[in-house]
Design a protein around this nucleic acid. Structure first.
Lengths: 212, 212
DNA sequence: ACCTGAACACCGTTCAAGT
DNA sequence: ACCTGAACACCGTTCAAGT
C-alpha cells in the first residue's frame, strides 16, 4: 500500500469504530460526541466525515461490533435447547457487560440484526426443528431476552432506597428490586423450553445440529 | 383563586405535561425541545423552568401520564391468570398506541414505575398467590412484556425489503419479520401461565381477588 | 412569583478552502 | 482523497432583569 502523505488515509472505519466503542462503553452514550471522538482520534471533528456519513453511521458500526461478541455459531451435535441456553446466556453476558452500548436506541432493524437473525434460524432449521415450533419460540425468546437484558441493566444502574424489613410487604417489594439474576434468567429459559416441549408432544424434540 | 395579573401562574404542571405528551406522541421525541414546547404553550422557553426543574422532569411527568392509562386496578373475584391477561393486554395496547412516548429512554426506575409495581404485587398478594410463585412469575412476565412491546414497535416502524417467495428460507425469514402479533402475544402469555401452573402443581391455582 | 431576552457551552452537519 | 476551520442552525440551562 503506497503511502502518499496528505492523501493516504491516516485512519480506517474499523479504527474509528474501535475508539468509538471504547468511549461509549466507558463513559456512556450521553457523553459521546463527534467532537470528543475526533479529539481521541487526533483529527478534527469534520475529518470523521471522510469515513462516515453521519453519527448514526458510526453507532451502527459500534453495535455491529458488539454483535460479533455473541456466541451464536452452530455446534455439531448440539440439541436445540442447549443451543438456546448457550446463545441466550452469551447474548445476555455481552449486553450486560457493554450496557452503555446495548442501551443506545435499538429501535429499528439494522443490517446487523438481520445477520444475527439469519444465523439463528439457520441453526434451528438445520437441526430439523419444525417451522410450527420455531414460529412461537422465536417471538417469545426474543421478547424475553431483550426485555430481560434491558431490565437487568436498569436494575444495575438503580440505587434503591433501603426497605423496611418489618414492612409486611417487605418480601414482595424486594422481589421487584432483585428480579433479574442468573437464577431468574435460567428459570425463564427453562420455562420456555419446557413449554415448547409440551407444545410439540408427543414429538421427543431430538432436533440436533448435524455432526458433519 | 384570586388572579393577580403578572403574579398568578398562567399555566400548571399538568397543562404543560398534557401539551408535551401530545407533541411527543405525534411528532416523536427527537423533534421535542423546550423551545418548541414553549412556542406551543405561548410563553418563552425559559418560563417552563418556573414549573419544572429540567427537561427530564417533564419527561418523567409525560411517562407517568401514560401509566395512568394502564388497566391495572383489582377486579373482585378475578383469578390471577385473568388478571395477567387483562393487565398485560392493556399495557401492550397503551405502549404500542403511544410508541413515541414508550420508547423514550426508560432505563432507570422512576417514581411511576414503583407505583405500578406496588399495584401489581398488591393484587397478587391479596389473591393469595404464594411468594414462591410470584417471584419467578414477576421477572419472566416483566421481561417478556417489555421486550415484546419494544420489538413490536420496532417491527411497526420498519419497512422490510420484499422477500423472494421462491427462496427456500422464505418461511423462516418471514417469521422474524412478522413475529409480533396479537396471536404471538397471547401465545407467550399462555405459555407462561401454563408453565406457572405446572410449577405450582398439585396446587389448583385458584388464587382470586377477594369479592368484598 | 412568574416570565423574559441575552448569553453560555455545547451539539451534528455543511461548505469552501487547503494539501 | 484526506483533512481543516469557520459557520449554520440548533440544543438545555443559567442569569440578571423586568412586572
Amino acid at each position: 500500500m503506497s503511502k502518499k502523505p496528505g492523501i493516504a488515509p491516516s485512519l480506517s472505519r474499523e479504527a474509528i469504530i474501535d475508539i468509538a466503542f471504547d468511549l461509549i462503553d466507558e463513559h456512556g452514550y450521553d457523553a459521546f460526541s463527534l467532537r470528543s471522538l475526533a479529539t481521541h482520534l487526533g483529527i478534527s471533528a469534520m475529518g470523521i466525515y471522510t469515513y462516515f456519513d453521519s453519527k448514526d453511521d458510526i453507532i451502527s458500526g459500534v453495535q455491529e461490533k458488539m454483535r460479533t461478541f455473541y456466541d451464536n455459531a452452530p455446534v455439531p451435535g448440539e440439541r436445540w435447547d442447549d443451543t438456546l441456553r448457550r446463545t441466550l446466556r452469551s447474548i445476555r453476558k455481552v449486553g450486560v457487560e457493554h450496557s452503555n452500548i446495548w442501551r443506545v436506541d435499538t429501535y429499528g432493524w439494522q443490517k446487523g440484526t438481520r445477520v444475527h437473525t439469519r444465523r439463528i434460524y439457520k441453526i434451528h432449521k438445520d437441526q430439523g426443528m419444525p417451522l410450527e415450533i420455531y414460529k412461537p419460540l422465536w417471538s417469545i425468546i426474543e421478547a424475553f431476552l431483550g426485555g430481560f437484558i434491558q431490565k437487568e441493566i436498569s436494575q444495575m444502574n438503580t440505587t434503591f432506597e433501603p426497605l423496611d424489613p418489618d414492612d409486611p410487604d417487605y418480601q414482595w417489594m424486594l422481589i421487584s428490586q432483585t428480579a433479574y439474576t442468573d437464577e431468574s434468567f435460567r428459570d425463564g429459559i427453562e420455562l420456555i423450553i419446557s413449554g415448547v416441549r409440551r407444545m410439540a408432544a408427543p414429538d421427543p424434540c431430538e432436533w440436533r445440529t448435524p455432526l458433519s
